[in-house]
Design a protein around this nucleic acid. Structure first.
Lengths: 415, 415
DNA sequence: CTAATTATTTCGAACCTCGAAAAAACACTC
DNA sequence: GAGTGTTTTTTCGAGGTTCGAAATAATTAG
């Protein structure tokens, strides 16, 4: 339904548009903002002087490699790093990390920790996060701006409201109310997001040329995750963070998956599945040891040398991915793909069978035209995407909406 | 990106909100519109008096079964049927129909025709549509309002811009520029849409209780189509009308599909696939006769009587649907389902295996909670959904935006 | 030093929505 | 039947927003 618009909404939307334009262009002049937003000079002038007065923007002093043109030089604006801070947390299998970012997106502090996520209680998991954030914030000096938001990226499924981790392979516990716990302990608004969605977020701001309105990031690791951007928006399910590509069915009643069900793609293309196909004789049970990235790389080395069960295992993984991508593309049409994680570094072994399988589906009928890139290290992407997510949120919901009443009054003495 | 808002946008958005509220509530008073839209009394008063003056709205005369309350009685507003007309066209296998609707959604004229869509040329197909619309419009008297839009619902895949039918099982020809052809011949803005998306549109306006923001309509007929509403919006692909559920892969390298590929759901659950499984011994080739709805109903009668290949064929169809829905739900989370078409009348034969298969997937883990309804006749749904689509479009893009300058000027003599 | 050029701000006009108050249209009561 | 109470709808002025045009500011070119 078309939704009504109040006069107040108008200003904050345009403030948000200005902030978004500056965040994208980094150091635009007012004139550049005019053409980026489509607003008039007068409006940009009014809004930017408001934002400067509020301390949201600042004028970078140095840097004048501007082309020496005639006329009044453009004066650049930038986000004031001191306007706010945000905190990112990344929770994955046996690893916890967190970082503090300033408003301009610079890293102020960070910490990493190994953690036996499989063994400890849900409470301990949450406590570790809280403690890490406390340590990071404690380091900072007193005058520093208060963090306006925490975003926790987790390897798992979250609810649609971004408050709980509903299910994750990294812990036996379910429905952990991470956001509530962190908010209670730290008094900072918190959201919980799926890590692959954050990867997609990062890819877009990293490389807007390749990844704009429609693309897919697939994390090939122990399990298989997906972050998808459709029509410019992160795709989420109706009740959860959604996009559980790894548990689409490749083969009905097929191989045993980590989730306890049968035939999921992950049961063919996850780390453990590749190892299982290369080393075990049946795919009806799980390997009795944890398969690491190193194990997969070792298999890949062997597979690259000669034909054998290792090469066949990667071939099967590629095939499973190809058929399942075919199903996905039947729904959403083909889109650029980025493969991220350890699977990206062994992607050469999977690509031929993936492309063959994909090309045999309706969804893959233009498979050759699909851009396909790889990115081996997911951690920095998750961190950057999470920070971008938090910053975009406060841009819209905190910064753009605050101080709306603090405008300069004009005296109109009409004759 | 946050998009800028001009002052002009504000008015037309609120006009659109008012029109949408009236279209939903049918005969609301101004006060009811106030609470439906959240706008103030003053604004509703201003907008509705504009719309009345423009002839978009009118006051229904009769009907005063209003509860006799104290106070000034509410005066109802309604859409003026004479404000505009729209045309719907429905193109499906061997059948073409069209109808003219008034602005309030009433049917003014309609026509149906049997047509050998498989045999005739693309040009002939388009010409038949144009001729039918011409006949329908010719019948109407001279003073009647000019049609503002044609929406063509086709059984096939369209491009994202809703101008061409890219591919369809009803004709061997591809990429037929239906919208361009109709616009050239009739001078009426035209859009081409997938028929299942129109079914979804109709379900929502028919039964908003069951179908609101997230639901799926699946057409079980010769082929299998899907219309999906996610977060209140019809879901479309990135380049096409998308949602080709029927060509998701159920079984890699499986049964031959009408599309020439192997293992699509449709190759297990389409009319021809059910017949093939019941009557032929291999699923690697197509039946050499056209399988009609009547054939399927006949098979169902046999299947209901005793165990045998017929019952097994329906069981297989249900299973294919169940596993594939599991994959779909892994992506988008479970949502209410409506099965439409002939398959809905034989759904009892598929439901048990469908539910079993679905329950064995991650996506179907809450399968029992899923609402599941059937609707045997798709034709009226397509027609109504198409009309609603056309009306919603002109509400927003024609009616709400026109006459924005024609406001009453107020004289302000400030002392 | 002046003119040309480009960027930014200022100012008034035109609109839009809102809240409060007024006007309108009815039912109820005496 | 007139007055009163109640609810709906319109009117009116205030406040806020964007826009275009004009004014102002800050440079380079000559």
């Amino acid at each position: 339904m078309t939704v009504r618009v109040r006069l107040d909404d108008l200003r904050w939307r345009n403030r948000a548009a200005v902030i978004a334009a500056i965040r994208r262009a980094r150091q635009p002049s007012r004139t550049e903002i005019v053409s980026a937003t489509g607003l008039s000079h007068s409006t940009i002038s009014a809004i930017s002087s408001d934002l400067l007065a509020e301390g949201v923007l600042s004028e970078p002093k140095a840097s004048e490699p501007l082309a020496l043109k005639r006329g009044r030089p453009q004066v650049a604006l930038c986000l004031n790093p001191l306007a706010a801070t945000i905190v990112t947390v990344d929770l994955s299998l046996n690893a916890l990390s967190a970082a503090v970012f300033d408003y301009a997106g610079g890293v102020l502090a960070e910490e990493r920790l190994r953690l036996a996520t499989q063994e400890i209680s849900a409470q301990a998991l949450v406590d570790e996060m809280i403690a890490m954030v406390r340590r990071l914030l404690g380091e900072r000096s007193v005058g520093d701006p208060q963090p306006l938001r925490i975003v926790v990226a987790v390897q798992g499924v979250c609810d649609a409201a971004a408050r709980s981790m509903l299910w994750s392979p990294i812990t036996p516990h379910t429905d952990i109310g991470i956001a509530d716990a962190l908010e209670a302990a730290l008094s900072i608004p918190t959201a919980v997001e799926n890590d692959c969605n954050m990867i997609a977020y990062a890819l877009r701001s990293h490389d807007p040329e390749s990844y704009h309105d429609d693309f897919i990031a697939i994390l090939l690791s122990h399990g298989i995750g997906m972050g998808m951007v459709l029509k410019g928006e992160i795709f989420t399910g109706t009740h959860s963070s959604g996009g559980e590509f790894g548990h689409m069915i490749h083969q009905p009643r097929g191989a045993l998956c980590r989730c306890g069900r049968h035939g999921c793609v992950e049961a063919y293309a996850g780390n453990y599945a590749i190892w299982r196909n290369a080393r075990m004789h049946c795919d009806g049970q799980m390997p009795n040891k944890e398969i690491t990235d190193a194990d997969v790389l070792a298999l890949a080395t062997i597979a690259r040398m000669s034909e054998g069960p290792e090469r066949e295992a990667f071939r099967k993984a590629g095939e499973a991915l190809g058929f399942t991508l075919g199903s996905l593309f039947a729904l959403i049409d083909p889109a650029p793909l980025a493969f991220v994680g350890v699977g990206a570094s062994v992607f050469d072994l999977m690509e031929p069978s993936l492309r063959t399988a994909l090309a045999s589906t309706v969804g893959g009928q233009h498979a050759n035209a699909i851009t396909l890139t790889t990115e081996t290290d997911e951690k920095p992407l998750i961190r950057e995407g999470t920070a971008k997510r938090a910053l975009d949120f406060i841009d819209r919901n905190v910064i753009a909406t605050s101080n709306l009443a603090a405008n300069t009054s004009r005296s109109s003495t009409s004759s």
